[in-house]
């Protein structure tokens, strides 16, 4: 096991930031910590890394107790922080070289690793740039390169895509998957459910310092009653028909606006057939039909009673 956290409790005065938090991560996983801002994701990471004092619990990394001077553990950890952690007075190359140098003393080996990291994040054309000359997306890439240049076995990425344009975000997500393919175990904290769904092999949903659900995305979705959302393109629909659609089995909500009928179902069989059967029976012509399975936001909503981005 790469990480084993048992009953972690962290308080800030009366506020319980982590409430008997448990976490087990296996080698080779991309593990997502998903939760709204203030749910305790970053606090959990900081406690796991021995940066923060905690009130109770145990933390083991690579099957050894974690502490501020557990250098053999730290040697195999890379961190990519939510805030950009680079020296503003050093160039892109010098920053990566400096942070890699804290792990790799051999100059030749380090130069090779720095080059690989620069290639990996695509900053070849910006090696001599100071951070202030980089765009937000490039800066995020530099931040990542500084955290992964020494090829750690465990990489912790704390909201690495905050305030990043879509193209850079895709590059970053693709890069994380490549790091995982190269053998690194990844912990990925985010409040973007799409990202977690896209890259994580297992996900923990956090709220108020607690782990409210853990599993693969399929397992998480199977935990809830919410079914798919079906959208049908229609010319028109009168209120009587809309009322009758709401009476169809397992329908929880139905709306019609801008030539679109949107129907929410609870988990059940034949929902699509039942809806389309009704429209055919009533001779209501329809166009394209879309069916969306429940999202992690639906999971979060059903478990906690609030939206993920509240």
């Amino acid at each position: 096991m790469v990480i084993n956290v048992q009953n972690l409790v962290k308080r800030y005065g009366d506020l319980v930031a982590l409430d008997h938090f448990n976490l087990q991560i296996n080698e080779g996983e991309i593990f997502g910590l998903l939760g709204p801002n203030g749910s305790g994701k970053t606090t959990a990471i900081n406690c796991i890394l021995s940066l923060l004092k905690y009130d109770k619990g145990t933390v083991e990394i690579f099957n050894k107790p974690m502490s501020p001077d557990a250098y053999d553990i730290k040697r195999n950890i890379g961190i990519v922080l939510q805030n950009i952690a680079v020296f503003n007075e050093l160039t892109v190359y010098e920053n990566i070289n400096y942070f890699c140098g804290l792990y790799i003393p051999q100059k030749t080996k380090r130069q090779q690793l720095v080059k690989e990291a620069i290639d990996f994040v695509g900053l070849n054309d910006y090696q001599k740039f100071l951070p202030k000359k980089l765009s937000g997306g490039l800066l995020r890439r530099l931040n990542i390169a500084c955290g992964i240049a020494h090829k750690p076995k465990l990489i912790i990425l704390d909201e690495p895509t905050v305030a990043v344009d879509p193209q850079s975000r895709n590059n970053i997500l693709e890069g994380i998957q490549n790091l995982n393919k190269d053998g690194a175990t990844i912990i990925y904290t985010t409040h973007y459910m799409e990202e977690a769904e896209h890259i994580c092999s297992r996900i923990m949903i956090m709220d108020n310092g607690k782990a409210v659900a853990t599993g693969t995305k399929e397992q998480l979705k199977s935990m809830i009653n919410t079914g798919e959302k079906i959208t049908v393109e229609l010319y028109q629909l009168d209120n009587k028909n809309l009322y009758e659609i709401k009476q169809i089995k397992d329908v929880t909500q139905a709306d019609f606006s801008e030539n679109r009928l949107t129907v929410h179902f609870i988990k059940g069989r034949h929902n699509l057939i039942n809806l389309l059967g009704y429209l055919q029976n009533k001779d209501i012509p329809f166009g394209r039909v879309y069916s969306e399975p429940p999202t992690l936001n639906d999971v979060f909503l059903e478990i906690t009673g609030k939206q993920l981005r509240d």
Binding site: P68, Y71, K74, I77, I79, L81, I84, Y103
Partner: peptide, 21 residues
């Protein structure tokens, strides 16, 4: 100092005695 700078967090996680750095 990891409570005051992001670079502090990175440096604090390096596998070297903090005082040496």
């Amino acid at each position: 100092q990891s409570n005051l700078s992001s670079v502090g967090i990175r440096n604090s996680l390096a596998p070297i005695n903090k005082l040496r750095i």
